[in-house]
Design a protein around this nucleic acid. Structure first.
Lengths: 144, 144
DNA sequence: TATTGTTATACTCTATAACTATA
DNA sequence: TATAGTTATAGAGTATAACAATA
């Protein structure tokens, strides 16, 4: 092939696919999906949150959050608690089970990070990480 | 932050999100979705193909391909032609409109590749690209 | 018998619009 | 009036299982 930039982009898109597959596969055992796991991840960082905040954090509509929270309530990962100070709102809250998987996510991320990066020469790792960060910035600017 | 590998993985997952958003946004104008565009991309590389082959190429079930092809037929991107030599099968075939967007994909990929990579120092680009390829390989092995 | 694709059915994620309860 | 969340409705992607046509 002649266009090495286009080829590199193709490999990067390939990476998107395999990373998504990897997450989905690891989640399979927990009965969670990627959007639901993302919501749990946010809750662990933010603590109990109204659904409106979660909608903005995940970049989806309030209606979508209703559905995701419904599923997580049914499967025992979160509860809807009354929001102190606003009776219209709820405080979506992790259960013990929810906190347990959230901690497993943190451990799993650390382990995968080691497996993917720990063997790399320091400079190559630094170049990779810096380039990833720059690409995110570039694509973000274009969106705005 | 303490765990630089976990942090690098977080940035990489962030990249997955923004790349997906970027694709979805660019596709919006054509009325296509990412799975449908992926199918068109495969058809351009493979030429007219039975649905069975497309199911394997995309890693989805035959039923899912039926739905994707239905949508692409409705919107004028492909047709179902009789398969020469097997009357059970169809030959999913790009229309002129389908070939036109497929060519636009090629051009768009080249342009985005340039915008993301052309400004990088040669060694950094090489390190990035090589690392992406290695990660894909690592994750692929684990799947098998 | 085995394979190709469809129909039947179901679940998840996604959205917009109308509505309820509260601020 | 404005905001938080739900109900109603709809469409896309995904899957399994049963089935028809053909190999």
């Amino acid at each position: 092939m002649v266009d090495r930039y286009a080829d590199a982009l193709s490999r990067l898109l390939e990476l998107v696919v395999v990373l998504n597959d990897d997450m989905t596969r690891h989640l399979a055992g927990t009965g969670l999906t990627v959007p639901r796991a993302t919501l749990i991840w946010e809750l662990q960082h933010r603590g109990p949150s109204p659904q409106r905040v979660l909608a903005e954090a995940l970049g989806v509509s309030p209606r979508t959050i209703t559905g995701l929270v419904d599923g997580l309530v049914e499967t025992g990962y979160v509860t809807r608690e009354p929001h102190p100070g606003d009776r219209r709102a709820v405080a979506v809250t992790l259960t013990a089970q929810g906190r347990a998987v959230a901690e497993a996510f943190v451990a799993g991320r650390a382990e995968l990070g080691r497996r993917l990066f720990a063997h790399l020469p320091a400079q190559r790792f630094a170049h990779f990480d810096r380039t990833v960060a720059e690409i995110v910035t570039t694509l973000r600017e274009e969106t705005a």
